[in-house]
């Protein structure tokens, strides 16, 4: 790897493990914290040999100069990151904020739906709608009680919160689409429904609102490489047109998205992903490593944080 450029990496200041699959990373990046808007995402490389993966920006703190990423350990990269991304370590590559910011103004009543990991990126949108004067109904869905996270953050910014669990261990038993139906029963004049989660969930949400004609926005998550509009790998079909999720999205009209196409394209490296995961877990077994689950770690004081990688160059 050439030393032709300086790349000190982006420091992880805090980490919280919500469960044995979901964790959050608070990363030091004052410029990005300043620029980030709800709905935008980043591309992360955990190390030089790693792959580039998109992660939505779950939160940002402009004063502290941090962005928060919530990650679900499903494949080799996210499982490896779960082990290696401890407080004090750095991410090799972090670029953003990418994508078009979500439009949050001018709505009177909205439903914000988060399914599983989608709960994280919908949070800044719910908060943003509230700050812009809307009545916000939050609908959160988890498989079961043990996987719930950030419910209190939503309670703080939603006028109503409907919690759903697949197994009924907390809140109402059902999927988020059932939660939406409940919200629609209680309110007649909903301006918009924003739904973020696995494609199959977003498709179900769009079907739930279609007959009532409620504008439904979804945030698409295709495979990405550059994230800057130059490879077309993230192309999605919306209303019969090809759009690039990285520069034309990631938000799109849920009633026009071809979800079948998206879900099919998400499988295109399934064989390689499976092999990589198998290889990695074999290596872990060989080295006798078990995935560590740490509780909410101590937070490093941002004031003592390393200098902003851009400060030296931009003069702060």
């Amino acid at each position: 790897m050439s030393e032709a450029f300086s790349n000190a990496g982006f420091k992880i200041l805090a980490r919280e493990d919500f469960s044995d699959v979901t964790y959050s990373l608070v990363v030091h990046h004052p410029l990005m914290a300043r620029a980030a808007q709800p709905g935008q995402f980043v591309i992360v490389m955990s190390r030089p040999e790693g792959e580039r993966i998109p992660l939505t920006i779950a939160d940002f703190d402009r004063k502290k100069g941090t962005v928060t990423l919530v990650v679900q350990a499903v494949g080799k990269t996210t499982k490896e990151m779960q082990q290696t991304c401890k407080v004090g370590t750095t991410l090799y590559g972090l670029v953003g904020p990418m994508g078009l910011p979500s439009p949050l103004k001018g709505k009177k009543k909205v439903i914000c739906v988060g399914g599983g990991l989608g709960v994280a990126p919908i949070y800044p949108q719910a908060r943003g709608f509230k700050e812009n004067g809307a009545y916000v109904i939050g609908v959160l869905g988890f498989r079961s009680k043990s996987l719930i996270f950030w419910a209190d953050k939503f309670r703080a910014c939603c006028d109503e919160l409907i919690l759903c669990t697949d197994d009924g261990s907390a809140g109402m038993k059902g999927f988020v689409s059932d939660g939406i139906k409940l919200a629609m029963q209680g309110h007649k004049n909903i301006d918009e429904c924003v739904a973020i989660g696995p494609p199959i969930m977003m498709r179900a949400c769009a079907e739930t609102t279609r007959a009532a004609g409620i504008k439904t926005t979804v945030s698409l998550n295709p495979i990405m490489v550059d994230g800057t509009g130059m490879c077309g790998g993230c192309r999605v079909k919306v209303g019969g047109e090809i759009k690039f999720a990285c520069v034309d999205g990631p938000d799109f009209d849920g009633h026009k998205v071809d979800f079948n196409d998206l879900m099919m394209r998400l499988k295109r490296y399934a064989a390689e992903e499976k092999a990589a995961l198998q290889r990695w877990s074999d290596d872990c077994n060989l080295m006798n490593m078990t995935p560590e689950v740490t509780q909410a770690s101590e937070v490093e004081d941002p004031a003592a944080a390393p200098p902003d990688p851009f400060e030296e160059v931009l003069g702060g």
């Binding site: 030393e3 032709a4 450029f5 670029v95 904020p97």
Partner: peptide, 22 residues
């Protein structure tokens, strides 16, 4: 060649999406 530019004093800052970061 990039190393030569660095020796001329040029700074390269990666992971920067101009237009979005600033």
């Amino acid at each position: 060649e990039i190393e030569n530019l660095r020796k001329l004093g040029v700074k390269f800052v990666c992971n920067t999406l101009v237009g979005r970061l600033f």
